[in-house]
Amino acid sequence: MPKSKVRKKTDYTVNSASRTPVKVKAGPSGVVYQSVMFGLMLLGLVWLLVYYLGASASTYGGEGKFLNWMADLGPWNMLIGFGFMVVGLLMTMGWR
């Protein structure tokens, strides 16, 4: 029976220059970035608190009341509040 050919294995060498760590030359995040980040998270929390405590139909159920527009949004308030908080949390990925 004929013998199969033996393939010559090529030596895979890793380029050592591509594996050296690169130092990022960016400084810390600015005060404005941090303020916006934390502000959005707090705004979302305050939005949900105001919705639960102040805009319920039993508290301000009539027309022309202070938070009637917020009560009219109904379940969309959850999306708005959590949306602010998620955007703030996503900004933490860029925080240095």
Rank of each mutant, 00 (worst) to 15 (best):
G81A: 02
A55C: 09
D11C: 11
A71C: 08
M70K: 09
M85I: 12
V50S: 01
V86K: 14
M93S: 04
A55Q: 02
V6F: 12
M37Y: 04
V50T: 04
S4D: 06
K5L: 12
T20N: 12
I80A: 06
G74H: 11
K5V: 13
L42P: 03
G39A: 06
G88K: 11
G81H: 03
N77S: 08
Y12Q: 15
L53F: 07
Y12D: 07
W95I: 01
G94D: 05
P75D: 04
S29A: 15
V32D: 08
L79P: 01
W69A: 07
S18C: 14
D72W: 03
R7Y: 12
M93P: 02
T10D: 04
L40T: 05
L40K: 06
L48R: 12
F38S: 07
L67E: 00
K9P: 11
T20F: 03
A57H: 02
T13I: 13
N68C: 00
D72H: 13
A55P: 02
V36I: 12
R19G: 12
K65G: 02
A57L: 04
T92C: 14
S58P: 07
A55M: 02
V36Y: 04
S58A: 05
L49V: 07
F38K: 14
P75W: 10
L90P: 02
A71S: 15
M78H: 11
Y33D: 01
L67D: 01
K23D: 07
N15C: 10
Y60R: 02
M41S: 03
M41P: 04
P21Q: 10
A55V: 00
N68M: 07
G44K: 04
A26G: 09
A17M: 15
W95Q: 13
N68E: 08
P28L: 09
G61P: 05
V86D: 00
T20A: 11
V22G: 02
K9N: 09
K5A: 06
P28K: 15
T59V: 00
A26C: 05
V50F: 03
L43V: 03
E63M: 02
V87G: 03
T92Q: 11
G30R: 15
S4T: 06
K65S: 10
L53A: 03
Q34D: 13
